[in-house]
């Protein structure tokens, strides 16, 4: 079956996936002065920008706002970067697509995985802020493993669809970039859920990214287990989406080499 063979191929080629992921991670800052340090500098600076705007200028009234915002922002960066880069994974695959026989799902998988590793590498910075700000650690942080797992499946499924779609319609990338901005502001990352008017609150739960963000907030910031109902629903949705994505990708991948 296509679905299982798609995933099996990924597993079989994990050495290649990993080699390309490290290429992606190391290559990104290679040649720059700070090199791999940028992996940590980038989220720090991002935090600095948002902290400045929203704690000093906007004055959102909330304790430990910077840490709260950072908790949700980091996974969002993983998600949006994966989609942004992943949409071009096939079209920019170059000779790997057109000149070599190559399990093509590796290319979007590598984009997702490298951004995920980047996210994991930025977690120590987050934890450092927890310490500094005195928020403290909770046992519920273990729930991160589940939340991140769901998030990974959800992200990979979307990336696969976008990567395939971009081969046939090159506008996909640009549309994705803009939609992500909208999506970002519709997701309670910069503001707590309490700021959303009551009437709209049920709508937030229709947004899988919001459910995931809330779950990250729960396990890291609030020190409680995530709302299993919505998270389970997103997990189910992610699996269905993954199935659809794999079918779409596998049905079209034989034309990728010709279309590029």
């Amino acid at each position: 079956m296509r679905f299982t063979s798609h995933l099996k191929e990924l597993a079989k080629n994990r050495a290649l996936v990993w080699a390309l992921t490290t290429r992606e991670l190391k290559g990104r800052y290679r040649g720059s002065l700070f090199g791999f340090l940028w992996t940590f500098l980038n989220p720090l600076m991002l935090l600095g920008v948002y902290a400045l705007v929203f704690s000093v200028y906007f004055r959102i009234r909330m304790d430990h706002y910077a840490v709260f915002m950072f908790t949700g922002l980091l996974p969002w960066v993983f998600f949006s970067q994966s989609l942004n880069e992943g949409a071009g994974a096939i079209t920019e695959g170059g000779s790997l697509v057109t000149k070599v026989l190559f399990p093509l799902q590796i290319l979007p998988a590598v984009k997702v995985l490298s951004n995920f590793v980047n996210y994991l590498l930025s977690l120590p910075i987050l934890f450092a802020f927890f310490l500094v700000d005195g928020v403290g650690f909770h046992v519920t942080m273990l729930g991160f493993l589940i939340v991140a797992g769901v998030h990974l499946v959800f992200t990979y499924a979307l990336t696969l669809i976008l990567a395939a779609a971009n081969v046939f319609l090159r506008d996909t990338r640009h549309i994705v970039g803009n939609l992500l901005t909208l999506w970002f502001f519709l997701t309670p990352i910069l503001y707590p859920l309490a700021q959303v008017p009551d009437a709209f609150r049920p709508l937030v739960y229709l947004n899988p990214a919001a459910v995931l963000t809330l779950a990250y907030h729960d396990v890291f910031f609030w020190g409680r287990w995530p709302a299993w109902g919505p998270l389970g629903a997103v997990a189910a949705l992610s699996l269905i989406l993954l199935f659809i994505a794999v079918v779409i990708f596998e049905n079209h991948k034989e034309y990728f080499a010709e279309k590029i």
Binding site: K26, G27, K99, V100
Partner: peptide, 15 residues
């Protein structure tokens, strides 16, 4: 099968 259709596929210039 090994194909010499493209030499150095996937080379990263900075590596």
């Amino acid at each position: 099968v090994s194909s010499l259709i493209e030499l150095g596929a996937g080379f990263h210039p900075e590596f």
